[in-house]
């Protein structure tokens, strides 16, 4: 592994996370470039946002949703999951392989900390799969 910095785009539901805390944590992840995009609900995310992130150079894309059952709009987080699966399939068809996109569901007990642990896992997985 070369430890080349990764470009990661985080789409997050503004109801699930405090933007300031997320940005602070995003800034503390070393050399990797983490961009955050706030959404009024994770269900607002569509296939094109996610694909564009990859097309413009993201090594990985994360959609952070509320815990299942906690969506303010009832099923936005379920839609986000389905769309992420559709984009994962499209990226596979495009030759990039699977696993460059995932959903991280907010854990009700230790919110942001859990999310960033999961992001670290995701980054390591991308490093392994892409040989970086």
């Amino acid at each position: 592994m070369t430890n080349k910095p990764l470009n990661i785009v985080l789409f997050y539901c503004a109801n699930a996370l405090d933007a300031a805390a997320l940005r602070k944590n995003a800034g503390e992840t070393g050399a990797d470039d983490i961009k955050t995009v706030s959404l009024p609900c994770s269900g607002k995310v569509n296939l094109l946002y996610l694909l564009k992130a990859v097309e413009k150079g993201a090594d990985g894309v994360v959609v952070i949703t509320c815990h299942h059952g906690d969506c303010k709009f009832l099923e936005g987080n379920l839609r986000a999951q389905k769309r992420v699966e559709a984009v994962d399939a499209l990226l596979f068809e495009s030759g990039l392989g699977r696993g460059h996109i995932r959903v991280i569901q907010k854990n009700t007990e230790n919110g942001v900390k859990h999310i960033f642990e999961e992001i670290e896992n995701f980054k390591n997985q991308i490093r392994v799969s892409s040989g970086r």
């Binding site: 569509n46 094109l48 694909l51 990859v54 495009s94 030759g95």
Partner: peptide, 16 residues
């Protein structure tokens, strides 16, 4: 919408 999605996927594929 599908034009954008398929175009984006084709650009990613083209790059790869």
């Amino acid at each position: 919408r599908e034009v954008s999605i398929i175009s984006s996927a084709l650009r990613i594929a083209s790059n790869i």
